[in-house]
Design a protein around this nucleic acid. Structure first.
Length: 470
DNA sequence: TGAAATGTTGGGGCG
DNA sequence: ACGCCCCAACATTTC
């Protein structure tokens, strides 16, 4: 081991365990400089939204504490990444920069340029995989083109499956001779100015330690019932891993390894079900990597001609949807849960997305943008692919004529109406049997709004719109 | 990871 | 006992 210094550039790999860039630095260098650079301009239209910034603030704060406990620091900077890294390199005399890869199209390009520039200036630069079980270029069809249908992709992943290896968490990180200036996390001003995020803290504990607790309790308690309960928004049946995975406080390798190591009994059928969900995540990133225009453009070409309504026509409906005031109980419950907690149950995401794109004929990009700003787990791969899947214009998407009926979905997955009653308090005193129904003519229930569209009529309108591009 | 319309089957009530 | 009808339950087709 040489007495050299390495910069470890943290991005969305905000953990110490199973962090290959950090692990590599620790093995090959004496001194480590952990760095985070806030450079939202580099992310183009997809810099973290409001809810994600709240999460990021707390996650960085915790990471800084954890590093301090190990004799190190998190150097936080704000500005153009290349400039900041160069400045830190000069102060510390670092000879290497390491990071874990990101796959957003804008960042892939930025990082490629950065890597070349840093190497030209004489630094050793290496990047690693910390975010995915398989790289987007690893699992492709034999002609090297990406999979466009999930099932064959999933089969392929199972065929190539290997129990993942995780690198260890360092207990001690040697400080450099000289630390660069540290702006600190607060200087990034990531917290919302108003008290919007107060409810987030009641629901969520960001950070690596909480992530690991979540994983442990899932393996011990959640996994066995996951297969049965994951579609039930009225029960705590999902993994709730999504924000931890997005920020890299938890790696998919750690999840898969924990499930592989757990015995048959505690994990039940949950192991394969959860791995399947991880596979969807991988599939989403694969698509985005190979089709960089996906966040704004439908994968299926004919959808360029889809007769979406125009902004002037749908603005009011979009607002009602965002505020959870559509008059459709299941939809409003979901949108209110999102606003209050920065998260929405996946089943309900599909319901509200189907409602926006099909019943309201609002372009899916509007929904994707709203989710981007309000979800703590907003993730360009998952969000893009989820919206395109629901809108019917993506890879292996639900055919356009699959229109979710929010009343039936509610009756099926929230059978006692407890989810709706929780988020739409006005409806809590309604007879259980009718709780998922929109208000009937003349019926009143507090100030709960009348339905902004007729479900049957708008469904037919959506099917007619589909005829236009067939 | 749909919903609704349409088709089929079979049990039971009834003359 | 038998044919007829009704309709729930399930299956298939269509969007």
């Amino acid at each position: 081991m040489s007495a050299s210094t390495a910069i470890v550039w943290f991005r969305r790999d905000l953990r110490l365990a199973d962090n290959p860039a950090l692990d590599h630095a620790r093995k090959h260098h004496e001194h480590i400089v952990p760095v985070f650079v806030w450079d939202p301009e580099a992310e183009g239209d997809w810099a973290p939204g409001g809810a994600a910034r709240w999460w990021l603030h707390h996650s960085l704060t915790e990471l800084a504490e954890r590093l301090e406990k190990r004799g190190s620091r998190l150097i936080v900077a704000k500005g153009e990444t290349a400039t900041e890294l160069e400045r830190m390199r000069q102060v510390t005399g670092a000879s290497a920069v390491y990071w874990n890869r990101l796959y957003e199209p804008a960042l892939v390009e930025r990082d490629r340029g950065l890597k070349a520039a840093l190497r030209d200036s004489g630094l050793e630069v290496r990047s690693f995989n910390a975010a995915l079980l398989f790289e987007p270029w690893e699992l492709v069809k034999s002609d090297r083109s990406p999979y466009l249908v999930f099932t064959p992709y999933w089969k392929r992943m199972q065929k190539d499956w290997r129990v993942p290896a995780c690198c260890p968490e360092p207990q001690k990180l040697a400080a450099p001779a000289r630390w660069p200036a540290n702006a600190g996390v607060d200087a990034l001003e990531l917290l919302p100015r108003l008290n919007w995020a107060d409810g987030f803290a009641r629901r969520w504990a960001p950070g690596e330690l909480a992530a690991r607790r979540r994983l442990d309790s899932f393996v011990e308690e959640g996994a066995a019932e996951y297969d049965d309960l994951r579609n039930r928004p009225d029960r705590a049946g999902t993994s709730r891993f999504s924000p931890y995975l997005h920020f890299g406080e938890l790696s998919p390798r750690q999840v898969a390894l924990a499930l592989d190591e757990a015995g048959e009994i505690p994990r039940g059928k949950g192991r394969l079900s959860l791995l399947r969900e991880l596979a969807w995540r991988e599939f989403s990133w694969l698509l985005l990597f190979h089709y960089p225009h996906l966040p704004t453009h439908a994968l299926k070409e004919p959808f360029q001609n889809f007769p979406w309504r125009k902004p002037a026509d749908y603005q009011k409906d979009l607002k009602a949807w965002q505020q959870g005031r559509t008059g459709i109980p299941m939809v409003d419950a979901g949108m209110r849960e999102l606003w209050a907690t920065g998260w929405m149950h996946n089943r309900v995401r599909m319901v509200v997305a189907s409602f926006l794109t099909k019943n309201l004929l609002v372009p899916w990009q509007e929904g994707a943008e709203w989710f981007w700003d309000t979800l703590v787990d907003a993730d360009l791969g998952n969000n893009t692919q989820g919206w395109q899947w629901t809108a019917g214009c993506g890879a292996d998407a639900a055919p356009y004529f699959r229109v979710f009926n929010p009343v039936l979905q509610g009756e099926k997955f929230d059978p006692e109406g407890r989810y709706v009653a929780r988020w739409c308090r006005e409806l809590a005193k309604r007879p259980k049997a009718r709780i998922h129904q929109p208000l009937a003519d003349g019926e009143r229930c507090g100030d709960y709004p009348r339905p902004i569209v007729d479900l049957k009529g708008s469904r037919e309108r959506a099917l007619e719109a589909y005829q236009a591009i067939r």
